[in-house]
């Protein structure tokens, strides 16, 4: 039933059973509302407002999706444009953050220099300051730069997201042996070569995780006050407006939820399977 990776080292059947039951309970708690959301998306209106409510759909229909696509087709900015905006923001924001944060994390983790500790301390502290009150000063900074109502207003601040730096730092500290760095230095590898060719492949699980987190974060971004031109707005903004039509749009809302989940879930699954492959092939630690 349970396959053990660690070649059955220090594992008992009783323990496995306990683990399995625990996982089953936890999974039903976390997955239930998602199952419910998917089921709702395929419910006809009569079942959506059924009393008592049913978890699973009895007469599945694509009506909610048809309604949604009809509403989307009526939008004066084509839906494909919203999607393109979202993809640009997500792709550039994520790649930029991974590169900037991992470079900084690499140097902070492997070298000692004046200001390094101060910088790291500021990064950790900033994680604990409420985003709510920095939103207005942030807007002022962006306005001074003249970036309001451009993609850059969302993309560039994402590059400086501190969570990724902190995460990379912890992984480089834990996974990259000092001897390896010394060997690279003796062999005359440049700082950039060590970072890109040696350290980044080792900490692949870390930046794969960063990609998931950043992708999701930016995928949900509506542009807010930073992007106000309709043709520059990302997809969630357009879909939210459709859903806000009221009670009658409940079915459409469920369809939107499911539709918006597809891409993050795909990225998540690909990413998670990559993490596993890295470990199977790297052999760095051996």
């Amino acid at each position: 039933m349970i396959s053990i990776r660690n070649k059955r080292l220090a594992r008992s059947a009783g323990g496995d059973a306990v683990v399995f039951v625990f996982l089953l309970l936890a999974a039903s708690f976390t997955a239930l509302p998602i199952v419910f959301a998917i089921s709702n998306a395929f419910k006809p209106l009569s079942e959506l407002f059924l009393f008592p409510p049913r978890l699973f759909v009895r007469n599945p229909t694509l009506a909610n999706f048809q309604d949604l696509f009809m509403l989307m087709a009526q939008s004066w900015v084509p839906m494909t444009r919203y999607l393109l905006n979202s993809l640009i923001i997500v792709a550039l924001g994520t790649v930029g953050n991974v590169l900037a944060a991992s470079m900084a994390a690499y140097i902070l983790s492997t070298r000692k220099f004046i200001g390094a500790n101060l910088f790291m301390g500021m990064v950790v502290l900033s994680l604990m300051f409420s985003q709510e009150v920095t939103a207005i000063p942030n807007y002022i900074v962006l306005a001074k730069l003249g970036w309001i109502d451009t993609y850059a207003a969302v993309i560039v601040p994402a590059w400086g997201s501190t969570l990724g730096l902190y995460l990379m730092r912890k992984f480089i500290d834990a996974m990259v042996p000092v001897e390896l760095l010394e060997a690279a230095r003796i062999d005359g590898a440049s700082e950039f070569r060590t970072y890109w060719g040696i350290v980044m492949p080792i900490v692949k699980p870390a930046w794969l995780t960063m990609i998931i987190l950043m992708f999701q974060n930016l995928w949900a971004n509506t542009g807010g006050h930073f992007i106000y031109s309709e043709q520059l707005k990302p997809l969630p903004h357009a879909l939210n407006q459709i859903v806000e039509g009221g009670v009658a749009r409940q079915g459409v809302g469920a369809a939107v939820t499911v539709l918006m989940m597809i891409l993050p879930i795909t990225v998540f699954v690909i990413n998670q399977s990559q993490i596993i492959e890295t470990m199977g092939t790297s052999g760095m630690a051996n």
Binding site: I2, F22, T30, A31, G253, T257, P264, I276
Partner: peptide, 30 residues
């Protein structure tokens, strides 16, 4: 716990547990 499973099973379980975080508004179901 899920670290002990085979890669494919682990990815699936991870998805089940992570599901609430993956969609911005799935929790509206509550």
């Amino acid at each position: 716990f899920i670290n002990d499973f085979k890669p494919a099973v682990r990815a699936f379980l991870a998805l089940l547990f992570y599901a609430p975080s993956i969609s911005g508004n799935a929790f509206m179901i509550w």
